[in-house]
Amino acid sequence: MDKENRHHLWLTVPALLSIGLLFSAYGLFGWTSFYRATPGGLGVGGDFTFDNYLRIFGSWRELAVIGETLWISFALTMISLVIAVPMALVIARSPSRLVRSILLFTLAVTFLSGGVTRAYAWMVLLGNKGLINLALVHLGVIERPIRLVFNWLGVSISLVHFLLPFTVFTLVGAVKNLPLSVEEAARNLGATRMTTFFRVTLPLLSSGLVVAASLTYSLALSSFLFPLLLGGGRVRMVANHIYERLFVAYDIPFAAATSAVFLVLSFVVILGFAGLERLVRKVVVR
């Protein structure tokens, strides 16, 4: 049996070729970050240099784009979590099959209907003469249309819409695994619903929350399409910055260096989340 299991290695050969291709692409791309762009076209040449990295770490503008991306992604992750927890609770616990189905179908259809579709819909909805502004003026909330698009507000609204299904889907499993009896015991001992939620449910859920946060955060970090369409060039995240370096400035080495710095930062953040998850599990579960 063990001998046969060793033959399993051969089964992975096609996948290994695919991984090999991808990593040679990453490797080559990373390697170009140590050279210079040749004028005209997407060429690379010159001597080995750390110039591109020095340019990033020496410029506040470059660092600001990275910092802003890290910060806004964090804020969006927190917002998504706050909305996702009640949704996951209903999906996992609602006694009505109809209610559960409505939520699941809403999430699935939103999730599957695609990025371009949703980014476009938000562009029209949030425009100066869009439905949202019209409704707000009509209801008397505001006097004249406010700017909801081509700024961080529009990008954030559309990104939460994009991230939410992912967050909920990762949380549902964790909520399903919660032992209901512990919460019932807390209630029986006289704890209010609020106290039970914050002192029993949330701590038990913390490991699942960290996993969901980590996925949501890495998705938020890599957002590209939503800031591109709803940011209208005024709001940029790192992915948009890399794209511009490439297709506006034709500077592959600089785009590569920015990608490398960004990738290292994302890995650090994700490793941080993994560490946090282990820590939380140790503290809560004991």
Binding site: L22, A25, A239, I242
Partner: peptide
């Protein structure tokens, strides 16, 4: 991030 994979 998808953009990094794309450019690479």
């Amino acid at each position: 991030p998808g953009v990094v994979t794309g450019v690479a």
